[in-house]
């Protein structure tokens, strides 16, 4: 079977498209982002723990925020009881951001890495 030159061009384009993510990452290291916990409030804490366990917060923080939004705005409930039985005030600015006051070094680190846009500030004021 004799192939025309065009099919080789086609194959070349296909292969380049397929390996383009590999080409774009040539020589790059696989460095995950490290969100910084270095804020005055966190440094002053005796036991450094978030509202819920870290693993849960990593996967479900947005679900928790949605839950808080509905509880506060729609049901008027201002207190959240976590899995350890501790009570927290439902507030992005007064609870979450009190400790995590370093948005650039905390939130944005992972959000930029994973390409997930933050839209807190479309409603909330900084």
């Amino acid at each position: 079977m004799i192939y025309s030159k065009k099919i080789y061009l086609g194959i070349l384009i296909f292969i380049i498209l397929l390996i383009s993510p590999f080409l774009a990452s040539l020589g790059k290291a696989n460095v995950p982002p490290v969100p910084s916990l270095d804020t005055p409030v966190i440094n002053a804490m005796a036991v450094k723990q978030c509202v819920e366990p870290t693993e849960y917060m990593k996967d479900y923080h947005m679900q928790l925020l949605y839950k808080w939004r509905d509880e506060y705005v729609r049901e008027g409930n201002m207190i959240y009881v976590n899995s350890r039985g501790q009570k927290y005030t439902i507030s992005l600015e007064k609870t979450c951001l009190k400790c995590h006051s370093n948005e650039e070094q905390f939130c944005q680190k992972c959000h930029t890495y994973a390409g997930v846009k933050l839209y807190c500030w479309e409603c909330h004021q900084k």
Binding site: A24, A29, P32, K58, D59, C110, A114
Partner: peptide, 24 residues
């Protein structure tokens, strides 16, 4: 839900040939 940062680390590990295995 999964931790998207670990997922991306897995993906980046594949394309940079520096494998990362998310075990949790």
């Amino acid at each position: 839900r999964v931790d998207i940062v670990s997922v991306k680390e897995l993906g980046m590990g594949l394309v940079t040939f520096r494998p990362f295995i998310p075990t949790n």
